[in-house]
């Protein structure tokens, strides 16, 4: 009964609002969103302006991230690239979620046979390396920005679908759904008012983390030369263009990549903070 009871004082948890990491993540996240919405606020330069006399300038006060082979300002390109990269990430996440909700609900709410089929299907896709799934789609549909969104979305779908199905099943089997049945509630009402809201609750966190993952995957495809094509200022495409000059101009790949890393890290930290606030411990 009293095994390992920890006195209350020891359980007081640090809230995310007290951690410097949270505030740093929030600040960086806001900065990227700002760059995506109004890039002109952050840089006065044009990302497509060519100055052949300034090619491969290393980072300096004038060009904090240096310049590329055509003398374009890398910082301006990173700032202007935020919009498209964010859009690709959000689009792919939305696509993946939409497909996942359909599949997950089919599995979680359909009969036993339907669940068995969809679950196998989801598991099989989940088992498959995500980037490969995306590559297959690009191979079939050809190389374009649209395909890139679809490919990343489909690649992220199995993970979400698994989660949705698991949540729906867990909530359906929970004590509080049984309590609703005992009160004489019909299945439709229980589904809409109790099962779905509770099943989708943890998705908020998942989306925060998922957008970051989608941006990384999209950038990886871009890096391989699949997706938005240079010279468009998009993070993946910039990585691809910088690949050829990596030994002579390290800044071409370093800075766009670092921004991607910091942004996904920020999303991870923010996602965890959201989870810490919305899902207080102690629930069984």
């Amino acid at each position: 009964m009293s095994v390992l009871t920890v006195p209350n004082a020891a359980r007081t948890r640090r809230t995310p609002l007290h951690s410097a990491g949270f505030w740093a993540a929030l600040a960086f996240g806001v900065l990227v969103v700002l760059a995506a919405a109004v890039p002109r606020l952050l840089t006065g330069r044009d990302p497509l302006d060519i100055h052949l006399d300034q090619s491969f300038d290393p980072p300096s006060v004038a060009h904090v991230f240096g310049t590329d082979q055509s003398g374009r300002d890398v910082f301006a390109r990173v700032v202007y690239g935020a919009g498209q990269s964010l859009l690709i990430g959000l689009g792919a996440t939305a696509l993946g979620l939409a497909g996942a909700v359909v599949l997950g609900l089919l599995g979680g709410l359909g009969g036993r046979a339907l669940d068995a089929v969809t679950t196998r299907f989801i598991e099989v896709l989940y088992a498959f390396p995500g980037l490969l799934l995306a590559l297959i789609l690009i191979a079939v549909f050809g190389n374009s920005a649209g395909t890139q969104v679809i490919a990343v979305g489909v690649a992220s779908m199995p993970g979400y679908a698994r989660m949705v199905r698991g949540q729906v099943l867990a909530v359906r089997g929970s004590g509080y759904v049984q309590a609703e049945r005992v009160l004489g509630r019909g299945p439709a009402r229980i589904l809409v008012r109790t099962v779905l809201p509770n099943a989708f609750r943890p998705l908020a966190v998942l989306i925060t983390l998922g957008v970051g993952q989608a941006i990384v995957w999209a950038a990886a495809l871009g890096f391989l030369g699949l997706g938005v094509q240079p010279p468009a200022p998009e993070w993946g495409a910039m990585l691809n263009a910088g690949r050829d000059y990596v030994q002579q101009a390290w800044w071409l790949d370093f800075f766009p990549g670092a921004v991607i890393v910091l942004f996904t890290l920020s999303l991870t930290v923010l996602g965890r903070a959201v989870r810490a606030v919305t899902e207080p411990g102690g629930r069984r």
Binding site: G175, Y176, P197, N198, R284
Partner: peptide, 12 residues
């Protein structure tokens, strides 16, 4: 009424 009331309440 069950042994573990917490699990029978909607967590929201």
């Amino acid at each position: 009424v069950y042994q573990d009331p917490l699990s029978s309440f909607d967590p929201r």
